[in-house]
C-alpha cells in the first residue's frame, strides 16, 4: 500500500490533465457553461469550487470511513454525501458572511450553486470508489479542483472574445460554447499520451 512520491505525482497529473474533471469526466458542466462568460466570474467560481471540493471531499471521506462503514450503511452514501455538501456550503456561507465579508461579497453568489455542482459530489464518490487513503483523497480533490479551475479559466478567456466575433445566429450562446469546449477537450485529450 505504500505510495512512492512519483505515484502521488502521477495522481496529480492524472487528475489535473488526463482525467480532467470537466473535459474528460463531464462533471460540473452547468457552472462551466453558466459562469464562464467573463473572467471575473470564472475566477470566483474556480476559487469557491476549490474551497468546497477539498473540504467536502475530505469530510465525506471521514463520514464514510467512521460512520457508514461501521454501521454497514454504505448504500446510503449518496444521501449522506449530498447532505454533507449542502450543510457544508450553508456553513461556509454563514461563516464568510460574518467574518470575512470581503470574500463573501465576491464569492457569495456562487456558493448556493455549488450544492448542485456535480463535480463536488462526483469527486466525493470517486474518493470512495477508488479506495483512496486520506492523504490521497486530499491530493486528488485539490488537483481535481485545480483541473476544474484551469479548464474554466481557459474557457472564459476564449468566450470573452466571442463578443467581438460574428457568430452564425443558430450557434449563438450555448451552442458555440459547447463546440469550443469540445475543442479544448480535444487539446486536453493529448495529455492521455503522457501517462500510459
Amino acid at each position: 500500500m505504500e505510495w512512492a512520491l512519483s505515484d502521488y505525482f502521477i495522481l496529480v497529473i492524472l487528475a489535473v490533465f488526463v482525467n480532467n474533471i470537466l473535459l474528460a469526466q463531464f462533471l460540473g458542466n452547468c457552472p462551466f457553461l453558466g459562469t464562464s462568460k467573463n473572467m471575473d466570474t470564472a475566477l470566483g467560481m474556480a476559487m469557491s469550487v476549490t474551497f468546497v471540493m477539498v473540504l467536502a471531499g475530505t469530510i465525506s471521506w471521514m463520514v464514510h470511513k467512521f460512520l457508514l462503514i461501521p454501521y454497514e450503511l454504505e448504500y446510503l452514501q449518496t444521501l449522506t454525501f449530498i447532505l454533507v455538501i449542502a450543510a457544508l456550503v450553508q456553513l461556509v456561507e454563514m461563516f464568510l458572511q460574518k467574518s470575512v465579508p470581503t470574500i463573501y461579497r465576491s464569492l457569495g453568489i456562487f456558493l448556493p450553486l455549488i450544492t448542485t455542482n456535480c463535480a463536488v459530489l462526483g469527486v466525493a464518490i470517486i474518493n470512495i470508489k477508488e479506495d483512496y487513503t486520506f492523504l490521497q483523497t486530499l491530493i486528488f480533490d485539490f488537483s481535481s479542483a485545480v483541473g476544474f479551475g484551469i479548464a474554466l479559466i481557459l474557457f472564459a478567456g476564449l468566450r470573452e472574445r466571442f463578443a467581438l466575433l460574428k457568430i452564425p445566429k443558430p450557434f449563438d450562446g450555448t451552442a458555440i460554447g459547447l463546440v469550443t469546449a469540445g475543442l479544448i477537450a480535444l487539446a486536453f485529450y493529448g495529455f492521455k499520451g503522457m501517462v500510459g
Binding site: 450557434f171 450555448t174 459547447l178
Partner: peptide, 22 residues
Amino acid sequence: VKAPGAFICLGILLAVMNYISM
C-alpha cells in the same frame, strides 16, 4: 464516442434546434 465528440455533437444539435425554431 470520445469525450470531445460529446461536446461538439451536442453543440451542433443545439444549433440545429435553434435553426428549426428560427
